[in-house]
Nucleic acid binder design. Sequence first.
DNA 1: TGCAAACCATAAC
DNA 2: GTTATGGTTTGCA
Length: 196
Amino acid sequence: MIKIYSKNISGTWFGVGLQDDKILGSAFDVSQNKVLSNLQKKLKSNAESQVYSQPSDFANQLFDFLSELFLGTSSPSSVDMEMRHLPIYTQRVLKAVACIPVGYVASYGAVAELVGGNPRAVGNVMANNPFVPIVPCHRVVKSDFSLGGYGGGLKIKLDYLLREKQGFQEAKNIEFEGKQLLVYPVERVLSACYLF
DNA sequence: TGCAAACCATAAC
DNA sequence: GTTATGGTTTGCA
């Protein structure tokens, strides 16, 4: 049985789907209904789910973590995400994107080079990301540093990146499964945005 | 700039 | 099996 919880933290609704204390999916939105329907859509469709009005202790811990992620004050650390039911490729993309640090962005193409496949395939995974914002899909942008797309709308994506701005200057490499991924400071995206 | 074509994993039929 | 669909990229006019 999948347990679904939701909670409002300073104006934003967060939701999680849990199974045996592992996260099956998470979401956020300004509307509670949207969070819930979003979540139901993303969870394993075969299993039954139940929506609870009061968060469990464990769910509350997660919500605190989610809101820190949302504010840009925490890194996507090691929460137990249940993704074994997802296609292998999807899992690889999600794990790779989870490695992009706060304050940096990577392009769809760069991620594709890292895990195989092509940029559109990466975009597809992002579009169906079950673990927002734990897997920071907002940190994946187009190769020309324009935003690309975002499930909740581009404004949400931009706001997110603004909050995460750290003042980094240089691009750097991060490591994933022995390979390198080149990530750029968020500022690169923002300066591209201010042009219009 | 703008457009067309290639790209490739998924989900839906 | 086959097809349609992208949160892309690249090249070329």
